[in-house]
Write a protein that binds this DNA or RNA. Structure first.
Length: 278
DNA sequence: AATACAGCCTGGACGC
DNA sequence: TGCGTCCAGGCTGTAT
């Protein structure tokens, strides 16, 4: 599932493949829900003739800077993928939206589970202003993170998943960061001390940077698996805790447990991440 | 304010 | 092999 590292990998791949500079000849919206609340016709009409500029990111949103002051925001949600391919390659039944580019290429939005969304707007702030700072924003500091965290009274895992708090973290990198910082995911955010706050902040950023260096995490082999630029992410082997319930902890040898927090599977080591501080 | 939960989806894993 | 059931989860909307 795409989180910050996977989204950034997708952006890097599209940029490297030379999407910026290409112009949209037409768009074929094959699943109306993908562009809601616009109708497929309205969306296609808005994007026709627009040229792609630089591609940026905030949290898990891909921000396509377009000509004529337009922005296309894309959210991959669970299974969304962009693929840039020659016109001759054709399309796939799971392509929910296909951009026909003037250079005889296709930009295909492939999304098996259909949760992904594209928004074409002149006012991207309407969507992006609801997000907290990006988790890898160079201006984001540990002290800001800790202050904000302590001002809330929530289970720390639930708070980290809240995109209005910090944008970009999802289930995998949250669990990895909490494990590396040795913090129990059920801890209330206002009970973490300064040292724990710094540890968590650094651990989360390290988990994200490692994921990015490995081109993201691909979990399985199937249709719903994360792929970018035709390649799997290699971060699975770096995971210490996510998906390893029932296995032995690499740090202490204890059994890794799985619980549910905020309706998400949460993996942790009870010995390394005790709820009560020693 | 925080929490819970349904809903959106469908491939894949699993049990029988 | 095939069928049924459950699970995965980012995010929104609604209820408590």
């Amino acid at each position: 599932m795409p989180e910050l590292p996977e989204v950034q990998t997708a952006i890097d791949d599209l940029t490297e493949a030379g999407l910026p500079g290409s112009r949209i000849q037409s768009a074929d919206v094959r699943r109306p829900a993908t562009v809601r609340p616009l109708s497929p016709e309205a969306f296609a009409g808005q994007v026709r003739g627009l040229r792609f500029g630089p591609i940026r990111r905030h949290g898990k949103f891909i921000i396509f800077t377009m000509s004529h002051d337009f922005t296309i925001l894309a959210h991959l949600r669970m299974t969304g993928q962009f693929e840039l391919s020659p016109l001759s390659e054709g399309t796939d039944p799971h392509d929910r939206l296909v951009f026909f580019l003037e250079d005889d290429r296709l930009l295909r939005f492939h999304d098996t589970r259909t949760f992904g969304r594209l928004i074409c707007t002149r006012n991207p702030g309407e969507v992006l202003d609801r997000l907290g700072p990006d988790a890898l924003d160079p201006d984001l500091t540990a002290s800001f993170f800790i202050r904000k965290m302590r001002s809330r009274h929530r289970q720390i895992k639930a708070l980290l998943l809240d995109q209005g708090f910090i944008a970009g973290l999802g289930n995998i990198y949250c669990d990895e960061g909490l494990f590396a910082a040795r913090i129990n995911p059920l801890r209330r955010s206002d009970t973490l001390d300064e040292d724990e706050g710094v540890r968590l902040f650094e651990a989360l950023r390290t988990a994200l940077r490692t994921g990015l260096a490995n081109r993201g995490t691909s979990l399985g082999n199937g249709e719903t698996n994360y792929i970018s630029g035709g390649r799997r992410g290699e971060n699975l082997r770096a995971l210490q805790i996510y998906g390893r319930d029932g296995e032995n902890c690499n740090r202490c040898g204890g059994r890794i447990e799985k619980i549910y927090i905020a309706q998400r599977g949460t993996h942790y080591c009870p010995r390394c991440q005790p709820l009560q501080r020693k």
